[in-house]
Computed example of a mutant assay.
Amino acid sequence: MGLMGCVAFMLLLFCTTSTAHYLSYKFYDKKCPNALPTIRASIRRAVSREQRMAASLIRLHFHDCFVQGCDASILLEDSASIKGEQKAIQNMGSVRGFNVIEDAKSNVEKICPGVVSCADILAVAARDASVAVGGPSWRVKLGRRDSTKASLAKAQRDLPLFTDSAETLIDRFSKKGLNARDMVALSGSHTIGKAQCSTFRGRIYNTTAEIDANFARTRRHRCPAQRNNGDSNLAPLDLVTPNSFDNSYFKNLIQKKGLLESDQVLFSGRSRTTQNIVIEYSKMASTFKSDFAKAMVKMGDISPLIGSAGQIRRICRAVNKH
């Protein structure tokens, strides 16, 4: 190999490995040793006040990473220079937990000003939220920096929709470096949390849908057939154990009791791959939890800002003013 070939090879090697090597489990060990316990305390308080917050924080991290990577762009509010992601159809009125992240950031800023990114706080909060409701734990790689921009267009393009087919979901996740198994495992976070009537009305009133008749009937009680009537009324995604991180979600899908269309297609759609994974997870809770933790780590690796890119925001809802 000639000199130019060696240079090109070394540049390629650096580009494909530097991000993975930069993120570190020990990133704040010396810079801010009490960062993780401080974040954990904030998340525990928030979840103890409202169990649903655990699902909201996991979803917030997910909706951040799928747009521009895990860079806390979802936390940015609209401004003169930013058209944020919070008003995307997949986020508006449903993504929440911003105040919890802001509170955790404020507490960390008191002990280590300008050191810990909002993007890292989001990643840690998702892990701590999972643990708070009996879900798995995992080691969170750290060292992400915060974006100075957001993208409404990318949010509307890249985030999953509650009407997506299994094939569409597989494709969306594949574009982010996540496979079908990762997708089904991450969908399992719907074992906790709630959905708004507007997202499942079409399913529970569709007589041709793959849905248990009694389940549909019970869901209609707080979700009227008329649009704009009770749209924001909530129903648990897992009617059996709505506040426990377990594998009931997958058992529900086999019984045609998935609340969202994008849930039920994992078992009832045309993908034999996702159907087999659902069956496996319904029988083996430990496998589901282990795979969920692995998938969360992979998701946290999506295009982080590192080195001197971006900034460490002082508050999570706005970029720093120089």
Rank of each mutant, 00 (worst) to 15 (best):
C118H: 11
C118L: 12
A119S: 13
A119D: 12
D120I: 05
I121F: 11
L122W: 05
A123K: 08
A123C: 06
V124K: 11
V124A: 13
A125K: 09
A126D: 06
R127I: 00
D128P: 08
A129I: 09
S130M: 14
V133E: 01
V133F: 00
G134K: 10
G135W: 05
W138V: 08
R139N: 14
K141D: 03
K141G: 09
K141N: 06
K141I: 03
L142C: 02
L142F: 00
L142K: 10
G143I: 10
G143A: 12
G143Q: 01
D146P: 02
A150D: 10
S151V: 00
L152D: 08
L152Y: 15
A153G: 05
A153E: 14
A153K: 15
A155T: 00
A155E: 07
Q156S: 11
D158P: 00
D158L: 10
D158Y: 08
L159M: 08
L159E: 01
L159T: 06
L159P: 05
P160S: 02
P160K: 03
L161F: 06
F162Q: 08
F162G: 02
T163H: 06
D164F: 01
D164A: 08
S165L: 05
S165W: 00
S165A: 03
S165P: 01
A166H: 01
I170G: 02
I170P: 02
D171S: 14
R172I: 15
R172P: 00
F173C: 01
F173S: 02
F173E: 01
S174A: 15
S174M: 07
G177W: 03
A180Q: 14
A180S: 15
R181I: 08
D182R: 06
D182V: 06
M183W: 11
M183C: 11
A185T: 08
A185G: 10
L186D: 02
S187M: 15
S187F: 15
G188Q: 07
H190E: 15
T191S: 13
T191R: 02
T191M: 06
I192M: 00
I192E: 05
G193D: 02
K194D: 12
K194C: 10
A195I: 01
A195P: 05
C197I: 01
S198I: 15
S198P: 03
T199A: 14
T199D: 14
F200P: 03
G202S: 12
R203N: 02
I204F: 11
I204A: 10
N206W: 09
T208L: 13
E210I: 10
E210A: 15
I211W: 09
I211V: 14
A213F: 10
A213T: 09
A213E: 09
A213Y: 07
